[in-house]
Design a protein around this nucleic acid. Structure first.
Lengths: 234, 234
DNA sequence: GCAAATTAATGATTTATTCAAG
DNA sequence: CTTGAATAAATCATTAATTTGC
């Protein structure tokens, strides 16, 4: 019953442009903090929520990958076709379909439990050289002298860090891709030792204080904490 | 770097028991409010966050379904085997595999874009008769006289409402399965008309006031607003 | 031109897979 | 081996494009 909206988010051209620029610059799965900041920025151009940003990246990434997949598949098909034609000159009865079952997008999941990311091998240069993003509202349209803020989004370490897939596989790594944690972490206070049955009324647990109001940080000072930026597995 | 925790949530027996009881009573995909309440309740028995509850239901549902799938598949295989054996008494060369390709869990997605939920037809009696859940902390172990709070969780309308899949396909339906909206809706204030370029510094947008501290509601007064409870499609 | 009818895009959700802690 | 956590894929549902008959 809200006055307006109540329908799905429809990105304004500016919002879309910025989002695409961010994507192009290498952002794939922004974490909670990043989403918050991006949202705050884009809110300047129109209605938008954090989930919109989240979904946008999710979808864009997926559909990008899908597009690529389709393209590669087509290529393979052609290659294969040529190969078969060539082989027919040699032996009369060629192997029916030798390659087609490997990366045919129309045959998803031949591998049922193959325990490997399906498309890891299809990663491509998505974070080549971050193109400058202009986000300062004072400089709209002056893209030429944009502040190259994208550097803050894109994982600075272009390759090195990407290689150590698991940063010790332990705690440390403060947070990275913890948006849901952040989103849902409005639950009860820190909590209790564990199954120590202290008779405390649960009702008083939920009045959780503002929990750090999450004020806007500088201008995208993402300290590149999450060395697990997506380009490592796209 | 938090003092304790830093490891994944490990449900206490009590928490687990309650969660399973809730699941048994028909809860499948609790919405934001429900998650909050459940979390608040379970926090009494030990450390727990909203996301834990969320994930638990997610996983439990998935694995339940998976188990069932496997079971049915096995049944089918046997049936089929028997059938073939019987048929072999009649004709020497039976139809190779007539049924196996229909519900074989090892052949996911034959249908590539069939636009129908894969396992809708496998729904089963998950919400038969909600077994009573005991959540009042005063009555632990006295399950016999539990307050049947589960009624509040399970979508009261056992069938009727389920049929009208889309409640007018419009606004109204305040919210239902909006947990992410709620989780992520800590973004900027309500927002702006739309692309009206008012020069306002974005920096001041994020100091969003507590945004309704989300105090604990009554004792699970879920007003069954979301008529889209999961039992309709599990 | 233009409004109903189709179709293509894409925002929003749900489900399936995968990873890895214990 | 079980299961909490996280991500990717599939799917649904609107909205925007585009086509079509007038």
């Amino acid at each position: 019953m809200s006055p307006v909206a109540a329908t799905r988010w429809c990105p304004t051209p500016e919002q879309l442009m910025i989002l695409e620029e961010m994507y192009r610059s290498g952002i794939r799965t922004p974490n909670a903090v990043q989403i918050q900041q991006i949202t705050a920025h884009l809110a300047f151009y129109g209605r938008i929520e954090g989930k919109n940003v989240f979904y946008w990246f999710q979808n864009h990434k997926a559909r990008d990958r899908q597009k690529l997949r389709k393209k590669l598949a087509k290529q393979l098909h052609q290659q294969q076709h040529h190969l078969q034609l060539q082989l027919q000159h040699i032996q009369p009865n060629p192997i029916s379909q030798p390659l087609s079952n490997i990366i045919d997008p129309h045959n998803h999941y031949h591998h049922h439990y193959n325990h490997h990311r399906p498309y890891d091998h299809m990663s491509f240069a998505c974070c080549s050289q971050p193109s400058p993003i202009c986000l300062s509202h004072q400089a709209i349209g002056v893209e030429a002298q944009s502040k190259v803020l994208s550097e803050h989004y894109c994982n600075k370490s272009g390759r090195e860090d990407m290689l150590m897939q698991k940063p010790i596989t332990g705690q440390n790594t403060s947070y990275g891709r913890d948006w849901m944690m952040m989103m849902m972490d409005m639950g009860p206070r820190p909590s209790y030792p564990s199954s120590s049955s202290v008779p405390v009324p649960y009702c008083n647990m939920m009045i959780n204080s503002p929990k750090i109001p999450l004020k806007t940080l500088e201008l995208f000072p993402i300290s590149s904490i999450n060395s697990k930026q997506d380009s490592s597995k796209l």
